[in-house]
Amino acid sequence: MTRRIRLVVLVVGIVAFAAAMSLAFTGMPHFGGDIHAYRDAAVSGTYAHDTANVVSSINFDQRGFDTFGEETILFCTVVGVAALLRPVHRERRREVSDAGLVLESTGLLVYVLFPLTIVLGVNVVAHGAVTPGGGFQGGVILSTGIHLLYVGGRYSLLRKLRPLVWFQQGEALGVVLFGALGIAGAALGSALFANVIPQGQLSDFISSGTVPLFNIAVGMTVCSSVIVLLASFLDQTLAIRADAGNDSVRKPRSGFEEGSAS
């Protein structure tokens, strides 16, 4: 298919799609109206369990099984990326040096922001049931904080502070914890992922039953997943190089390196 035909097909498709969507939108409730049936159901369900953050309550209390699926997607992605990005045939891992110019101001900023970001991440995870935030958001903040070390130009420091094995296990542990909490709901309560812990007082730090525990499990998984994912990509960019013996026709003298890599 040439580029021209492809563009024609694209324009036809877009016109048809736009027409269908316009038709659908005119049949929808008006933007900003006050009829939200699901909102009302979710709000009363959240109030019954004394959870302040309705979004957290929906994610971890009312539709916990869906969130478990979502977490499994993340887990599988990490496994897939790790499988795709491992050093393959005719590649070798080289030692990465910390060379390169890093501005002193950047280094200072990293030293100041690194602890702040970690504390902020833990705070967002811990208060997921009370204030905006939760395991997903806090996990991403935590992993970003750890990668500030790389922005500061110290890949070796990042590698020391980030023992990858821990995070690979932490990720699995988070998923297992999430599933175990769900099964505990089935064993002690009425259904899978039921909120079996007493919910306490609305807006208290310790409130809303199992929601904070789910938040911690998800925070572990997300933080570890992002770290393992970024580690794979960083490794690919910095450490993995094609063997010089890749094009044996062009470079006949590379037999030595091929031998040492295997």
Binding site: V43, Y47, T51, A52, N53, V54, V55, V130, S203
Partner: peptide, 24 residues
């Protein structure tokens, strides 16, 4: 849709269900 303070059961909040879906 965060309860506490001035936001109570009868306060009009935006739909949290779609927000949770956006997070997913």
């Amino acid at each position: 849709p965060i309860f506490g303070g001035q936001v109570g059961r009868t306060t009009a909040v935006v739909d949290p269900v779609v927000q949770a879906l956006a997070l997913t």
